[in-house]
Design a protein around this nucleic acid. Sequence first.
DNA 1: CATGAATGAGTATTCATTCAT
DNA 2: AATGAATGAATACTCATTCAT
Lengths: 192, 192, 192, 192
Amino acid sequence: MRKKGANGQESRARLLTVAANEFARSGYHKTKISTIVSRAGLTQPSFYLYFDSKEAVFNELMLKFRSQLKELIADGRLEAGISREDVPGRITAVLSSLFEFLERDPDLTQIGFFIGQEASEVKKELTAMIEQNLKAEQKDGYFQQEANMTIIAECLVGTLERLTLQQLLTGKCTPEDLAHQVVNLYMFGITA
Amino acid sequence: MRKKGANGQESRARLLTVAANEFARSGYHKTKISTIVSRAGLTQPSFYLYFDSKEAVFNELMLKFRSQLKELIADGRLEAGISREDVPGRITAVLSSLFEFLERDPDLTQIGFFIGQEASEVKKELTAMIEQNLKAEQKDGYFQQEANMTIIAECLVGTLERLTLQQLLTGKCTPEDLAHQVVNLYMFGITA
Amino acid sequence: MRKKGANGQESRARLLTVAANEFARSGYHKTKISTIVSRAGLTQPSFYLYFDSKEAVFNELMLKFRSQLKELIADGRLEAGISREDVPGRITAVLSSLFEFLERDPDLTQIGFFIGQEASEVKKELTAMIEQNLKAEQKDGYFQQEANMTIIAECLVGTLERLTLQQLLTGKCTPEDLAHQVVNLYMFGITA
Amino acid sequence: MRKKGANGQESRARLLTVAANEFARSGYHKTKISTIVSRAGLTQPSFYLYFDSKEAVFNELMLKFRSQLKELIADGRLEAGISREDVPGRITAVLSSLFEFLERDPDLTQIGFFIGQEASEVKKELTAMIEQNLKAEQKDGYFQQEANMTIIAECLVGTLERLTLQQLLTGKCTPEDLAHQVVNLYMFGITA
DNA sequence: CATGAATGAGTATTCATTCAT
DNA sequence: AATGAATGAATACTCATTCAT
């Protein structure tokens, strides 16, 4: 009865957005419910109207990130049979859209990649998916037979993680740019 | 009934070790002084006999990591003038000793690389140092002139970070092994 | 089971009253938040709902005393120009209302006059104000020209302080009574 | 065996002096044993070699003050039978030596007069003694018969207390000076 | 005579969470 | 749909005090 046009879904969404921002900026523990509700223009009990607990909001955000990421990966699988010279372009496109996704909601990316223990799992899953793809492509002869794709995938994820944090989310590079550079580096190295 | 051979320095060291382990396993906030002292076989006031605060121990650990790392890096700078075919070997050696250092005290590595806000600074500094080295070598003609060393350095740090966490600290790979693979990847890529 | 008519302002007031009583009886350090809230029928967190800290409540009480006192003094300034024979009556009235004020809230008086380091400042201020008044009256010829009003003011404040503690707050004398005796003493002495 | 010329009595004396200073400056609660021993160049256990507890040192200091004061008062009792014109001089001398005593050891005076609950008793006793003397002199006809000596004594003690704190211990006035002024004020008042 | 090392007991403060309205 | 008021449970930190040497 306080806010006239009060709308449950809107309040919930606002809380979620603010929560994401707080978690992203301050981490899980330093984030206080009191801050979230205050920034959302609500009071503490209202928070519990929409979420079961602090952990619950966090999980919801994490889940959101994970499912979006999973979906993206599922769509972007490299099909076999493309010609050798198209591989770089194809991979660039995949990475590009991955960076685009990571750029879309910085707070969510921060949470999904860097906050909480689940972030670790997320990256493990991402690594596994990438490893699968790389191995398939290796089997098809696109990559060196002796390359250890488990390690390469790990390297790549570390690279993506760091570039996301330092170049993408800071606005220093565009998704396409980053994708290009990564592909170049990983395919041909930097030797003169 | 006090410990007979009660020795201050020993108690302090024990507290420091346990603290490192707790911080590494649980992060800064979840780590409780009560757990630390209990594991060290002491009581809470004893903790404050040796450290000013929870933050102070953490800072001491972080400082320890940072100074050790700095020292390592300072020592390991590539000298210019080595012949072209020795560059890979030289870099491998540097990375190898870096991984060895990171492997030596896993808890400290965890803290210095992954816990707290300073970890971010640590990696930035590491990135900057690496970037310097890479640029010097690029100037000497070892690497492609058009490679963006800022980005490469970032990629490399991400790679190191991830390999440390997933391969090194889990005991899956040796420092030498990882160094080799990273150098191979970054110098020549994985294209067949 | 919350109090039915739970009312924030009332709770706050209750806390303030109890706090004043505890500070007055036990001094700042011996006063425990746990005692205050317990006597106020609340729990510890509730205390922090209304006050920032133990120090903050104390300061609030001290401020309350100081501002009330300041107001009283401001109102009671002796106007010049009254006839010589009215001076004693006038001063008696002023002291009387001062004692009345000090009697009104014994706990607050205890705090403002005897507890904490600010009590010292309070008395210094009071002394300064009284000195001003006495000097003005001296200039008007009501008092001996050679009397050192700085000292007299100090004596008077000591006297007021002690009488308040021993005679007023113990109920042994009324404000009027005390005022009369003080004026008599200070104006004419006790010589036969 | 640490300090070569270590002398128990000397250490004890040093502790006592430092303790007095700390109590005087910071009050009972804020005074820490750790500070005392540190300033005395000793360690905590040594403190307990000479005193049973924090309270015990304080009591010892308080007792010291009280007994010295009691002795002083006992000596200074006004004998009856002196001529009327000598009364002021006699009283001045008494007050003067009282102020001198209070000036001798400022820390002890601070403790005995202003710190702890016993200070209250001290002043009550002082008041009682003064009241006795005044009443005796009143009976002898030196003072007005209708003066309420209970109140006057109280006033006087307040005055002494305040002058000691503000004028004597700050070095602004000498004992003789203060004694004179007080006697003048209390005997003849300030009326022009 | 003195201390290095350790502790029992206490206290302010914080935060997620809940009831009654 | 929302809130004013309140709390359970936890935690960092302090200080006087004590053994064993």
